[in-house]
Amino acid sequence: MSAVMTPALRWPWAALVAVGGGLLLYLAFPGHDLWFLAPLGIGALVVATSGRRARPAAGLGLLHGLAFFAPLLSWSGIYLGPIAWVPLSLACALSVALAGVLLAWTGRLQLGGRVGVGWGAGGPRCCGRSPRPAPGRPSRRCWRAGPSAASAGAGWPSARPTPPPWAWPPSAGRRW
């Protein structure tokens, strides 16, 4: 039995939240330096697209991207006018529209909280049926990422990148 997700906000409110989130994200960039507004801007897009299908989520992502990129890239229209500024803003906003679709798709997954996608410093988290491995077996079913997991030595199957053999460790007698 699959539960149907209803959107968190009705259409006009979701559009207003998406545009407001884009403006909050714009205020987080240099020139205004209100960096603490960046998570609120991204969170506004997540709230606006939650429970929506792909096409409305793409529209909300486009609104969010236009509200963010149009004022941010206004410098590109100083010498060339809107012939450069409008297409550049629209092209960048289309990437945010794609992110809105991806947010809507991952939000509609009915996996009971076993898959959570973090769009930021935490990175993706994907847990299988059980976060604990069988006794004596390494767990490849539950990968955790984040500051606490990285400091504890957990993380992706290879938490630390392996350096190339010529770089580390230096072999005895080799001069650098």
Score class of each variant (00 low, 15 high):
A154M: 10
L103W: 06
S89Y: 00
V117E: 05
G120N: 09
L90T: 13
R137T: 09
W143T: 09
G113N: 06
V86I: 15
S151H: 09
G153I: 04
L94H: 10
G113H: 03
V117C: 10
A121V: 15
G116M: 12
R140S: 06
R144I: 12
P87G: 07
R140P: 04
R114T: 08
G123K: 03
C127F: 14
A152G: 07
A104Y: 05
G100F: 05
A145W: 14
A104L: 12
C126K: 02
V101R: 01
L109C: 03
S89F: 00
A149C: 08
P138Y: 13
R137A: 07
R141G: 13
R141F: 04
G123Y: 03
R144A: 08
V86M: 06
C142W: 12
R114V: 08
G128H: 04
P133V: 00
R108D: 08
G107C: 05
L88I: 13
A91Y: 12
W143L: 05
G107W: 06
G123P: 03
W85A: 02
S130W: 05
W143G: 01
A99F: 09
R114E: 08
S89Q: 01
R137S: 01
C127D: 13
P147G: 13
S148I: 15
G100T: 07
S139H: 05
L98H: 01
P133W: 01
P138S: 09
C142E: 03
A145Y: 12
P133N: 00
P133G: 02
R140D: 06
R125N: 15
G118V: 15
S89H: 01
G118E: 15
G113P: 05
A104Q: 03
L98V: 15
V86R: 02
R140N: 05
